[in-house]
């Protein structure tokens, strides 16, 4: 039976044949914009696996995944796209791109194996930071800010996590950093490929990773749907031990190099 009142034809049972029908029922989500948005996911580890999975299932179809590493056994407890046979044989970004594409044949997930410092083309609508150190985050933050691309940073440490949304013109990651970040940045192994010192691996678990990556993708949905008014302002801190979350607002640091450079043009 068909009902024809000028609106799109309603087909009995048709909603079950539409991959994104349930998403469309969330009125403010603009699925056409979601489909066409160009997304960079920097980091194809724990957060990157979860973020790309969520992006593809949510309807994003143009996703680039950048990572310089291959897969190790300890990744297998947090990365749904990785298998035992992948260990030490393939690059993380290659595996994520290949297997995420299987989730939706209309999605194009492209692997960008290599350092994020080597990314030349910043033609993106959203950048998701799924990294593991401050130096790499600073790089992503500054390039995103300079190119006026919304940047959604995720981070975890054991059962704690954080999401930081940086919108063009607003406070950036660097605006919230202090001397403790600089010290930590100098101490850490960096994603530049130059190991400067040995630092013990950080605690991590899939449940916290899943929460933080889900929040990152949810913020991306708001931004591409033109609902920046609903976005997180600016940082959410999550404590999985107490099941608590709180938000905090940042302010532009007038001395922040990113703002001086961009606003000084």
């Amino acid at each position: 039976m068909l009902i024809t009142d000028g609106s799109p034809l309603l087909r009995i049972g048709g909603s079950d044949n539409d991959r994104h029908d349930r998403m469309r029922r969330i009125g403010w989500i603009d699925m056409e914009s979601v489909h066409s948005a160009r997304i960079l996911v920097a980091g194809a580890g724990a957060l990157g696996n979860e973020a790309v999975k969520n992006l593809v299932l949510a309807g994003f179809r143009r996703i680039d995944v950048a990572d310089m590493d291959d897969i190790v056994v300890s990744n297998l407890s947090r990365c749904l796209f990785f298998r035992d046979k992948d260990v030490k044989t393939v690059m993380k970004s290659d595996v994520v791109a290949e297997r995420a594409s299987e989730l939706d044949p209309d999605a194009t997930v492209t692997s960008m194996p290599g350092r994020i410092q080597d990314i030349k083309n910043w033609d993106y609508d959203i950048v998701l930071g799924c990294l593991d150190n401050i130096s790499a985050r600073m790089h992503l933050n500054s390039h995103s800010y300079f190119h006026r691309i919304p940047y959604i940073d995720g981070a975890t440490d054991g059962f704690r996590g954080k999401v930081h949304v940086v919108l063009p013109g607003g406070p950036c990651l660097q605006c919230t950093m202090n001397r403790s970040h600089v010290r930590e940045m100098e101490r850490r192994f960096t994603c530049t490929g130059n190991s400067t010192t040995y630092v013990p691996r950080m605690a991590a678990d899939i449940t916290t990773t899943a929460v933080i990556a889900a929040m990152q993708v949810r913020e991306a949905l708001k931004i591409v749907s033109g609902r920046e008014d609903m976005c997180l302002k600016h940082v959410a801190y999550y404590n999985g031990e107490s099941c608590e979350m709180f938000t905090a607002e940042a302010s532009v640091d007038p001395e922040c190099a990113n703002h001086l450079l961009r606003e000084g043009e």
């Binding site: 990572d67 593991d132 981070a155």
Partner: peptide, 9 residues
Amino acid sequence: MIPDPEGGR
């Protein structure tokens, strides 16, 4: 005082 996590990969 809030610990600022930096892991994720």
